[in-house]
Design a protein around this nucleic acid. Structure first.
Lengths: 251, 251
DNA sequence: TTGATTATGTGCGATATACGAACAAATGTC
DNA sequence: GACATTTGTTCGTATATCGCACATAATCAA
């Protein structure tokens, strides 16, 4: 790609959108400039553009994103066949298991939920399509990392902030790489309260007809309800069944 | 706002993103140019920019959005306190009612789901945060339109394509305005299979402490399970309860 | 109030981008 | 295979945008 095939004004605008988030629901021009590292004048133009187009509200001081912003993510969700294909299977799986079931894909160091069928909420965090979790400590993340060539998985771990969310969280890169090998060999990953105390989950990869891993499928359960050691025995047959049913439908 | 405070390259890029959708999951440069009405050279630069930034994949012929695109919608969802606040109440409501419950806001002529607790799927369409339905034939849409000044509600109806999704869909603007008055007076809206045959729903407004309507809350049920006429009797108390509980928490 | 500090708005020269057209490549048609 | 059509790419130039420097406005502490 040539230098001139890149619209930097567009790229800068996208950076400005991503500056908003949980900690920054409302941003002034100067704050957004600080977060993005862009010039204030540039950020101001981007924010005014967003406001003019209805993607943001402006009260003269602060900017806040509007629901119109969801059109952009929705453009992906509705354009991608995967969520629609897996949803009915997810609903069925969730009902049979009596637990929440989800499908996610990898984006950088994080897993992104693209579909979910939830039972009673067990986590403090509310997961929905678009939600993100660090890959290294999530069952679907382990499965997706295990599907990559080792060097790539290692590269992702190296640029992840490996923090211990709970006393059980594995944070040593070597130990994690070893775990990925185990996951690759056995074809599934089990997480025992590494993300949040009281929460276990088990995940398997979803493969395309050509055998490529395109996503991960999991079941999450409260640790009080199901011991991590029992997860495989209890849910692996259901997961395998769903995995097999989806295989010819993906890609 | 001055002319020069608008970054047209950014605005054009956003148009290109929105060109993707259910019917257009993969776009060539020429297709995207046709949909957006922009010059092919311009669209090409935007798409290559998206691809360079990892928001799109490019196989040399077609572009497709990547999961990274969900970061943009997620910037809104995580930046807005509403979804997180309402979710636990929604879960509770959904469980008590044994039906799906949702919260949405208005964006132009459509309602946008910002939170949802789903039970067994009853609709052909899969709703999730970010999903959109035409306001005129959805229960939450009726409630949100009823909360607007009549001229504004009328203006929205006038620029909506009022199509009959089912034989029961109300499509006459006058009749709809009359219905909005009824909704405003009674404080809730009931939809009887106007969006999809076999599906009924009932919605109430969610008000801020200052009495402003900021969102709508609904319960959807299969018509076979609950007759539309029974909806209010059966679910209105639960909805009112949730509405009251949320009122001090919103805004 | 004052003055210090921080945030926002604006004019301008340098640079980047859009447009239309021309060209090249691919695709479809007869 | 030749022709017509569509699509992708490149180029020159008019126009738009960037980032800087400065001007103005808001905020706050003493």
């Amino acid at each position: 790609m040539r230098e001139t095939d890149f619209v930097s004004g567009f790229a800068r605008g996208l950076m400005v959108i991503e500056a908003f988030g949980e900690a920054q629901p409302r941003l002034s021009i100067a704050e957004a400039a600080k977060i993005t590292g862009l010039d204030r004048a540039t950020v101001r133009r981007s924010l005014l553009t967003l406001s003019e187009l209805g993607y943001a509200d402006y009260d003269g001081k602060f900017f806040a994103l509007t629901p119109k912003m969801l059109r952009l993510g929705h453009a992906y969700l509705s354009a991608t066949p995967l969520p629609a294909i897996v949803q009915p299977y997810l609903d069925q799986l969730s009902e049979k298991a009596g637990q929440s079931a989800s499908v996610s894909v990898l984006d950088g160091t994080e897993v992104v939920y693209v579909a979910r069928a939830s039972q009673r909420r067990v986590m403090s965090i509310n997961l929905m399509p678009g939600s993100r979790l660090p890959a290294y400590c999530a069952s679907m993340g382990r499965v997706l990392l295990a599907a990559l060539p080792e060097v790539e998985a290692r590269a992702i771990l190296d640029r992840t902030e490996l923090k211990a969310n709970t006393p059980r969280t594995k944070t040593d890169p070597e130990e994690l790489m070893e775990e990925l090998r185990r996951v690759r060999a056995q074809g599934y990953a089990v997480i025992d309260q590494e993300l949040e105390l009281g929460l276990c989950s088990i995940a398997v990869p979803l493969m395309s007809t050509r055998g490529q891993v395109v996503a991960a499928l999991n079941i999450g359960a409260p640790a009080a309800h199901v011991a991590a050691a029992e997860l495989a025995q209890r849910y692996l047959p259901l997961l395998r069944e769903t995995q097999a049913a989806l295989r010819p439908l993906v890609q």
